[in-house]
Design a protein around this nucleic acid. Structure first.
Lengths: 105, 105
DNA sequence: GCTGAATGTAACCTTGTGGATACGTACCCA
DNA sequence: TGGGTACGTATCCACAAGGTTACATTCAGC
C-alpha cells in the first residue's frame, strides 16, 4: 500500500501507467514518451515493478512492460473509506454539484 | 491532482486523514496521535491544507482541522480509468475473488 | 565470436523531504 | 499587562529522490 502510493506520487510514473493502460510497451517506447533519459525511466520502471504495478516479460533484447491493475485495488479500498463521506456531503445539494461538475448537461 | 497524490504518499499524513475521517481534531490532538514532534505535524498539516484535503477553523488559540473528502474525488476519477481493467481481469473468476475479498454477501 | 541494439546498473550531483530544536505569535485569563 | 497555552515558522541536518553520463549485460544475426 505504502509502496503503491509512493509510486503513484510521481508524475512520470503515472504517465507510464497511463500508457500501459492502453497497451503493453517496451522500456524504449516508454522512454520515448517521457521527457527524461532512458536510465531514469528504467529506475521508474523498477519502482513500479517493486510496487507490483507492472509486470515485465522478456522478448529478445526488449523488456515488455504490462500493467497490473490489481495493485490498485488496495488504493481503491482505502479510498472507499472516504467515498461515502464525499457522497453524503451536504446531501442532495452536493450531489447536484458533483453531477454538474462531472457531466455538464 | 499532483498535490493530492503527493500528500497521500506520506504515512503520517494518511494517519491524519484517517483520524479526521472520524472527527475534527485540533493540531495538538493530531500531534499526540503521531510519533513525531508538533512542528513536524504542523508542516504535514500545511501540506494537507495546500492540497485541499483539510480545512482549518480557528477556535481561540486552537486550530480545528476538518476533512475535505471532496479533494479525493479527482483521485477516485483517475483510479476509475483503471477500475474496469481489474474488474474485467480474467473475467468471472477474478470477479468472484474480488467479491470474496471484500466480504460482501 | 564479433557487432549493434535494447536495457538495466553504478556513480555522481542537486534538490526535496521529513525530522528535531529554537523562536515568534496570537489568544485567553487573571 | 503579564503569563501560560496552542500553534505556526525558521533553521539546520541527514537522507531519499530524481536527473544525468558512463559502463555492464544480454541477445540476435552475420
Amino acid at each position: 500500500m505504502d509502496a503503491v502510493l509512493h509510486a503513484l506520487a510521481d508524475e512520470s510514473r503515472r504517465t507510464v501507467l497511463d500508457i500501459l493502460r492502453d497497451r503493453p510497451a517496451s522500456a524504449g517506447e516508454l522512454a520515448e514518451a517521457l521527457p527524461i533519459a532512458r536510465p531514469g525511466v528504467s529506475r521508474h520502471l523498477r519502482v513500479l515493478r517493486e510496487a507490483g504495478l507492472v509486470d515485465v516479460r522478456q522478448d529478445a533484447q526488449r523488456r515488455i512492460y504490462t500493467l497490473r491493475p490489481e495493485a490498485l485495488v488496495e488504493v481503491d479500498e482505502w479510498l472507499g473509506e472516504y467515498r461515502r463521506l464525499w457522497e453524503n456531503r451536504l446531501g442532495a445539494l452536493q450531489t447536484e454539484i458533483a453531477r454538474g461538475k462531472k457531466a455538464r448537461r
